[in-house]
Design a protein around this nucleic acid. Structure first.
Lengths: 128, 128
DNA sequence: GGTCAAGGTCTAGTTTGTAGACCTGATCAG
DNA sequence: CTGATCAGGTCTACAAACTAGACCTTGACC
């Protein structure tokens, strides 16, 4: 119960931790996907919606607002009727894509290995 | 409703999409954090638990099992009493850390910019 | 007057995550 | 002989997050 337990763990995450702060926002179902879609250029709400076929309007709206809030995305509203809203990456958003694309490349390269691992796990633990 | 809508969107995500398949698993609240913690070497369940102070046992257990299933992590059970279980990264897991560490570095470098963006957003939209 | 935009919001219902009690079974203190 | 303790979970309530789909707005068109 005392601090002694903690001595052996030198890397407890501090609570205002930049990594966690960023990853908690980015690391959700949709953010990475939306950023990747927006790499193709300025897009309207419904275009993004159709690009990511299985996102709900609510989550798209919410996630875009968060990405805007964090400075990854710029939202431009053209007050026409029906309204037109365009989303595009900011410089920050674009710079984020650099490390992220490496991650995506890794995902592509290692997808087979992951699928195989799943298969083996299933064989070993499937009959539990 | 016909295909014509889709013509203008050349990059709809296919459903068995490697990127999505990998990111959907990795991109959750905890996976990235756990992988990063395990970079420090083999660790026991409770050590990971204490490193990530605010994860629930259930989620730790569940996430570790998924990481094991996908081949990122190896689990070794020593059938003692009380039981000892050790987790360590596999080669796949370690190779994933390469692109991931770039992402973490980006997070560290740009955390300030993100916080500033949040501040500005708050000023502009806080009094809504 | 009814319908159709686009970009959302609102509501109800499902899924996912949380906190914390409980389980196991050998060991040890009283 | 009781019962407390250890690690690594699981189980059970409850709370938060997500989903599908109805609805809203406001001009233009039929």
């Amino acid at each position: 119960m005392s601090q002694e337990n903690l001595v052996s763990i030198p890397f407890v995450f501090e609570q205002p931790c930049p990594i966690r702060d960023v990853l908690d926002r980015i690391g959700d179902q949709w953010s990475l996907l939306i950023l990747q879609v927006l790499e193709h250029g300025t897009m309207r709400f419904s275009e993004i919606e159709r690009a990511i076929t299985d996102i709900s309007k609510q989550m798209l709206s919410k996630t875009l607002r968060r990405l805007e809030e964090d400075g990854f995305v710029r939202r431009t509203l053209y007050p026409e009727v029906p309204p037109r809203v365009e989303y595009e990456l900011t410089d920050l958003g674009r710079s984020f894509l650099v490390p992220m694309k490496r991650l995506i490349a890794w995902a592509n390269e290692n997808h087979r290995a992951i699928c195989e691992a799943r298969g083996e796990y299933g064989v070993k633990n499937g009959g539990r």
